[in-house]
Design a protein around this nucleic acid. Structure first.
Lengths: 145, 145
DNA sequence: AATCAGGTGGGAAAAAGTGGGAAATCTGTG
DNA sequence: CACAGATTTCCCACTTTTTCCCACCTGATT
């Protein structure tokens, strides 16, 4: 289970260390994609298989016949990348993903159960402050489901 | 699985490099067709078989009996081309397809799971900005299926 | 204080992408 | 039918980017 918050440096070559505690679970290859809201998702290979099968399910039909599906697939697949984790636990974040969420020197690496999220550290802390305030209310909503 | 975004040069001879990460999966020959929206589709030979079978499926119908199908097939088949991938991974884009999407010096090469798309790089980034905004909504829709 | 683990930085080797020349093929013309 | 010019194909070479590996730094632990 991936949990916790880590602030790590992004070096000049766009490398970021995965927290040591995540490495075993992540394996040696992960898939990084644009996330919803201002973050990136990092999936294990196994988790990605689940996600991608669901997204491109073509048992019955061709994936490019529906406009919504085309656009969402362009978004999720088109801007995803398979990245190796190097011998000391770092990954390389493609520029187009860095730019998307305004990453420069520093990133917040967040464990969210079955995936990891990458945030611009500033955005992350602002976001957390906001969520902090709504948390009781959000809990209430989920409780009513 | 074909994923990721690459911006490559189109040289004076209309050649474009396929991203190294795609080459193994693409093999040595691909089919390039006009795509939906302002892009081109590139299929592996295997994927193309699926596509063409589905489009000209005669189990239920003869493909030429329906006007819509006739026209769509003219669109996809009529301007499709089989192209070889050269020894260092480049393909040659036919002029009539280049012109269709306004390609000149630079193209965005996008992996969309089971196919590759080629975009004018400007058009691609505009398109993504637009999709970015709808992404949560699209995700919601597809999630409810 | 020494050791260890986690994180950061940088240089060298390898790979990917780009450009261009020469050989082969095609086209049109005398 | 042969030839000249143009186009296409094939291959080689240069440049930039990526990958791999090693070394250093810092803070915690014993």
């Amino acid at each position: 289970m991936l949990i916790g918050e880590y602030i790590h440096t992004i070096d000049e070559k766009s490398r970021v260390s995965m927290p040591a505690k995540f490495r075993k679970e992540l394996g040696k290859k992960v898939i990084i994609t644009p996330g919803l809201e201002q973050c990136l998702f990092i999936f294990t290979v196994k988790e990605w298989e689940k996600v991608s099968t669901r997204l491109s399910d073509t048992k019955t039909d061709l994936s490019f016949l529906k406009a919504d599906q085309r656009n969402f697939n362009r978004y999720m697949f088109g801007r995803a990348a398979e990245v190796e984790i190097d011998s000391i636990g770092r990954i390389l974040i493609p520029d187009f993903l860095k730019d998307r969420i305004g990453l420069k020197n520093s990133a917040a690496i967040i464990g969210v159960g079955d995936r990891v999220e990458v945030w611009n550290d500033k955005t992350w802390s602002q976001n957390q402050e906001a969520v902090e305030k709504q948390a009781p209310e959000l809990a209430e909503k989920l409780g009513n489901k």
